[in-house]
């Protein structure tokens, strides 16, 4: 019954989101696109985090997707919609190749290397003047769907739906146990027959593909990009803050964090331009110190307390209890 209720709630939420353009103007739709983009990035970041690997390479793969898409249209004459799939494929293939090297690394070594990827991709695009337009970037002759706000919104919603679908699959397939086991203890995971490298590679390639896809959707929606906008560190920091705020190791947590922080950031940008970055930093610090399982973790704990029934660990995959259980 509980699962059925969740499906009904998800279907209602999806129907409302699909219908948004019927009663929202261009500006709110633009804000919604921004929130959805960050939401997809936050969810995809969390998908890899479930294996214990902390990636700071979101902006790198997002930017790579942006450039792959815009250059495929400009230099290759590709259909804009097809270029989004192409960009996702490019990001996935690059991640596949890089994965053989960087997925041997763990903890901060992996994180720092993924951070470096962003800078490497940015410098490459910065310096390939004839191909990528150099620091001035590149401009499309026309925005996808002629810039129609509703169509752009639905395109972004489609990208988000693909990401949530992938995350949902991660949560409900054998991947969940494998990634959780790897996060908890690699030696034990191996001795249970888990091919650690294979599962890490799958997670890294899938999440990179999703990030590249969202980059492509973004660039096709705005019609231009530069190295500084495509590889903007915000595309790494904001999704991270959103996932931490909402609650990690789940699909719903990063989504909730993205809605809250995404809408708050729009308001903060108007009130304190550039100061909103300070607010993000403060949020990350507060969350890490006082609620490591995020708002969703707090909510689950509250529900469990209110219910008052059962053992302390009645949730079968309750990652919120993980820290306490250690």
């Amino acid at each position: 019954m509980k699962i059925r209720g969740a499906y009904i709630a998800a279907a209602v939420a999806a129907a409302i989101m699909i219908a948004f353009p019927a009663f929202l103007g261009a500006y709110p739709l633009n804000v919604a696109r921004s929130v959805m983009t960050y939401m997809a990035l936050a969810v995809s970041w969390d998908m890899l985090l479930r294996s214990g690997q902390i990636s700071f390479g979101i902006a790198g793969l997002f930017g790579l997707g942006s450039y792959a898409s815009i250059l495929a249209v400009l230099r290759g004459g590709m259909d804009p919609l097809l270029s989004i799939a192409f960009a996702a494929l490019v990001a996935g293939l690059v991640a596949f190749a890089l994965g053989f090297a960087i997925l041997r690394l763990r903890a901060m070594y992996f994180s720092i290397t993924t951070l470096a990827l962003m800078e490497i991709f940015r410098i490459i695009m910065h310096n390939l003047h004839d191909f990528s337009g150099g620091p001035e970037g590149v401009v499309l002759p026309e925005v996808i769907f002629g810039g129609d706000a509703s169509a752009l919104y639905w395109l972004c919603l489609g990208g988000l739906a693909v990401t949530i679908g992938a995350s949902w699959y991660f949560e409900r397939s054998k991947l969940r146990l494998a990634l959780t086991a790897i996060r908890n203890d690699e030696t034990s995971a191996r001795s249970n027959g888990i091919d650690i490298f294979k599962y890490l590679l799958v997670a890294f390639v899938v999440t990179s593909t999703l990030q590249g896809m969202m980059g492509a959707i973004q660039v096709q929606s705005y019609g231009f990009t530069t190295p500084d906008t495509a590889f903007d560190a915000n595309f790494t920091l904001l999704p991270l803050a959103m996932a931490l705020l909402g609650g990690i190791h789940s699909t719903i947590g990063p989504m909730a964090g993205a809605v809250l922080l995404g809408i708050a950031s729009e308001w903060l940008k108007l009130k304190i331009p550039y100061g909103h970055l300070v607010v993000y930093g403060v949020i990350i610090i507060i969350v890490i110190l006082f609620m490591p399982n995020g708002l969703f973790g707090l909510a689950r704990k509250a529900i469990r307390k209110a219910g008052g029934a059962g053992s302390p660990g009645s949730a079968s995959n309750g990652s919120d209890a993980e820290e306490g259980a250690r």
């Binding site: 959780t180 001795s191 249970n192």
Partner: peptide
């Protein structure tokens, strides 16, 4: 199958999940 010295269980997972994991990848 190995039962390691330091139990090396997955503390944040339920008994059900730990048992399922033992069979899931063989």
């Amino acid at each position: 199958a190995l039962v390691p010295q330091e139990r090396e269980l997955f503390p944040g997972m339920s008994v059900a999940d730990n048992l399922e994991l033992g069979a899931a990848y063989v």
